[in-house]
Design a protein around this nucleic acid. Structure first.
Lengths: 345, 345
DNA sequence: CTGTTAGCGCTTTCAT
DNA sequence: ATGAAAGCGCTAACAG
């Protein structure tokens, strides 16, 4: 209940040594005599001393605090991302300012500024929609490491963790093949995006790897939307030898494919294997049992934190490096246990 | 990219004033001449000065940092709780250390210690299972306000936010009455707990309020477990005039009631209105569409944060005060939109 | 209105 | 192995 906490000098006086000695004890220095160390340590918890890390930070001009700003903690994907970060941050002896931007760039800017004033050693940002490279420029320029996750920030000179579309597509196709499918389509999207071509490449390579002949008709282009998914199914229905499963460019397309299948009296999941990339995370709750390909959020969080800590310790920040994260996770909405397609056509 | 950040003296020198003056400008003091203020402010963002809150904290022996420790951020209930706290903490100009204990008391203890060293002005704790009053005693004794939420910590002399069982029960019954039910049972539990009697009191009062005669047979005692729920239904089936709905002591009982109804060929929700108190939060995912009575997590988070800030600003901590939180929220697992019983018996 | 002075609690040479 | 002294960046009296 003391108004002024007991400090290093209090325990120094009590032990009859100088504060330097106490400081050395605190740091576990080997230069201090065992007997004094013992006495000092005794006093330390006898007097209920608590270390003032703020003072140390000031003196040393560094801190073991990292900032984490997440666009939507309410979304279980991001919550798990945060938990993954928390795990490694904590084990490394750091603490985190963890804030929720609620997809507001204003709030995000504000909170980043505040964290900076509070002396964070680094920042992990899962950007709010509409964030620009500029929003983290001054921070990064001041030499504080920044790691961006999940969403890309074009033009920002910081390390970024995005999902590995190629590997993800490959894993998804392997999954379908493992379920016994041989005729597998790729639905949705056009050729002009990097995302599309990476995913198609993964799709192709996985088929080749399994010795399944490629059939270019099975790459069914359409708008990357729910309507596009419906359209793709309609197109597919015309085929003499129809696919028994499909990988969809994203979850919106996948929803559309479900719609399309149902109006053709095919039960998605049962009659037709279907996996969607989980891009439009916000829509996740819309179709409960959809199997999706997505990054493992906790794992991604851990990697992001590790990356940040590495940069902090190196005292040097990566410029322009883009790291990609792999890992297929079959998830339903709500992170509930996996539900697989139970039969195949 | 400077190794040493520009400080208050740098800008003082540049402006040809003393650092006190700069400090005053920073604090928006009215005692400073408009012209100097202008010059100083100009230099401040010209030189890219960033305020060192740590130094200020040290000098003032206080901080605008609060600690928040949550037992499971992965659970959407607690994630939303955290978001509610974040909202008010941030608007009050504070930052938060937010950590996830993962239901580990060790981890929790560790993280609280770390936050304390980092100079938090207060702590909000959603305790890990097994937490004891002792775990926060020294913190509270040192004069740092602590607010405990969701779970009670018997013996802890701190303010605590728990749900208001009486009001919750009342709200639940009103809800069922609003759906047209008149014969409503209360299932599960025995008389010896405060929780039980509060809930039954709410149940009774709501019925009286609606002019529905009480029928003591409709209070069906049973173990507060899933098995207890099944047993309660069996008992109920013997009644000549059966209830058409029930409020269950907790969600475990409610699950049991669902089981029991199904084995009697009654469809829960459709054939029989059923609401469970949402105590066993961990079980939430087990029954997707169960209607539950629970506190609004965001609202509770906000209230907790407000309470904490009030205590921080008062410079004085509540001892032994227990605040209760109201508010019926009809939720399914995953926080998905409400699904109501669509018909009544 | 503005400058001087004296720390907050710690770490860190540099002596001893 | 331990102490003395300086100083991190800021605020708070107190003078002027």
């Amino acid at each position: 209940m003391n108004r002024t906490r007991t400090s290093i000098v209090d325990i120094a006086r009590a032990a009859g040594v100088s504060k330097s000695t106490v400081s050395l004890v605190l740091q576990g220095s080997p230069l201090v005599n065992d007997k004094t160390r013992e006495k000092v340590s005794g006093l330390i918890d006898e007097l209920g001393y608590v270390y003032n890390r703020g003072a140390a930070n000031l003196r040393q001009a560094r801190s073991k605090i990292v900032g984490i700003v997440v666009n939507d903690l309410t979304n279980s994907f991001f919550a798990e991302l945060a938990v993954g970060m928390d795990l490694v941050v904590q084990s490394a002896g750091y603490v985190q300012f963890l804030a929720h931007s609620g997809e507001s760039v204003d709030r995000q800017r504000q909170v980043i500024a505040s964290m900076r004033e509070n002396g964070i050693a680094g920042l992990i940002l899962s950007p709010a929609r509409g964030t620009e490279a500029n929003d983290i420029k001054s921070l990064a320029d001041s030499g504080i490491p920044v790691v961006v996750v999940v969403r890309n920030l074009p033009g920002a000179k910081v390390s970024t963790l995005l999902s590995d579309n190629y590997a993800g597509a490959k894993a998804a196709i392997r999954h379908l093949i493992g379920l016994g499918h041989r005729r597998i389509a790729f639905m949705g999207g056009f050729v002009d995006t990097a995302v599309f071509s990476d995913r198609v490449r993964g799709y192709r390579d996985a088929l080749v790897e399994a010795g399944i002949p490629l059939n270019d008709n099975f790459i069914i282009h359409s708008a990357p939307s729910r309507a596009g998914g419906v359209a793709a199914v309609e197109r597919m229905m015309l085929f003499a030898e129809r696919p028994t499963a499909a990988l969809c460019l994203n979850d919106a397309v996948a929803f559309g494919v479900c719609d399309g299948l149902r109006s053709n009296n095919i039960e998605p999941g049962k009659g037709f294997g279907i996996i969607g990339f989980d891009d439009v995370i916000e829509a996740k709750t819309a179709v409960p049992a959809l199997t999706t390909v997505s990054v493992d959020p906790q794992g991604m969080g851990q990697r992001a934190a590790q990356l940040l800590l590495k940069q902090i310790n190196a005292g040097q920040i990566d410029q322009e490096s883009i790291v990609t994260s792999v890992r297929l996770v079959v998830r339903q909405s709500c992170g509930a246990p996996v539900k697989q397609p139970e039969e195949m056509a």
